[in-house]
């Protein structure tokens, strides 16, 4: 089947890219990585470059967590203020509810971000890789050809098409991403550089993107509350 061989070619290509990046890293850190890769990934066994990259990421994560504590403190103060005054602030609860609905793709959203045009077919893992690195760059909402994508949306290749949450989509693709364009751009560029081995990709920064499609939350059948 032709799609099977395309799949294999694409997967081989991905492995080649991974391995070349690995090689490049290895070149940076010379022999250290080779002799130490078998050892558990403990700090003591790591080269300086890896440790430096880890420091960079930890700084970023900790800044995010500091912002989270600030937001939570503010929310708590707002709730307490109403309680102290003898009432209840349902708007403070509403605000959190809306935020979670945005995260879970249940409400239409708008904001700045990127519009990414992909002029040919791509494989499921290529879209996964792109979404993953855009999320890592702080992406808050996605749609592909008008359909909302959230973290738990299954992405599966069916021949030249992509099955996104069960819906079959075909090229050309338009991926809309809401988030800080400044942060998203480098992540999009890196994904594009991998994709551009086969298909044309163009990235545009936008000040106002609307994602109107929503996802209905699935009832839990097997999962029960509590550990």
């Amino acid at each position: 089947m032709p799609n099977r061989s395309a799949d294999r070619t694409a997967r081989t290509q991905r492995l080649i890219v991974i391995s070349l990046i690995g090689l490049a890293l290895g070149f940076l850190i010379v022999i250290q990585l080779r002799s130490q890769a078998a050892v558990a990934r403990t700090l003591a066994a790591q080269d300086d470059t890896s440790v430096a990259l880890l420091i960079n990421d930890l700084n970023r994560a900790n800044n995010q967590l500091i912002q989270q504590t600030a937001a939570l403190s503010q929310q708590e103060a707002q709730l307490r203020q109403a309680l102290t005054a003898g009432g209840a602030d349902s708007q403070a609860i509403e605000k959190e509810l809306t935020m979670l609905r945005e995260i879970s793709g249940e409400v239409p959203v708008r904001g700045p971000g990127l519009q990414i045009g992909i002029q040919g077919s791509i494989m499921d893992f290529e879209l996964q890789d792109a979404l993953n690195s855009l999320r890592n760059a702080g992406a808050e909402a996605f749609s592909l050809n008008g359909y909302r994508i959230i973290g738990s949306t299954p992405i599966i290749s069916r021949g030249q098409n992509l099955l996104i949450g069960g819906r079959s989509l075909s090229a050309p693709f338009t991926l809309l991403v809401i988030g800080d364009p400044e942060q998203l751009q480098p992540a999009a560029d890196l994904s594009a550089s991998t994709l551009q081995t086969r298909v044309q990709v163009n990235i545009q920064r936008k000040t106002d993107i609307s994602i109107t499609d929503v996802i209905a939350s699935r009832p839990l059948i097997y999962a029960q509350l509590g550990r």
């Binding site: 995010q64 912002q67 989270q68 937001a71 809306t98 935020m99 609905r101 945005e102 995260i103 409400v107 239409p108 959203v109 708008r110 904001g111 700045p112 971000g113 702080g138 808050e140 909402a141 809401i178 988030g179 800080d180 609307s210 994602i211 109107t212």
Partner: peptide, 8 residues
Amino acid sequence: LVKYAQPL
């Protein structure tokens, strides 16, 4: 934290 997306 949602900083950029706003409910439409």
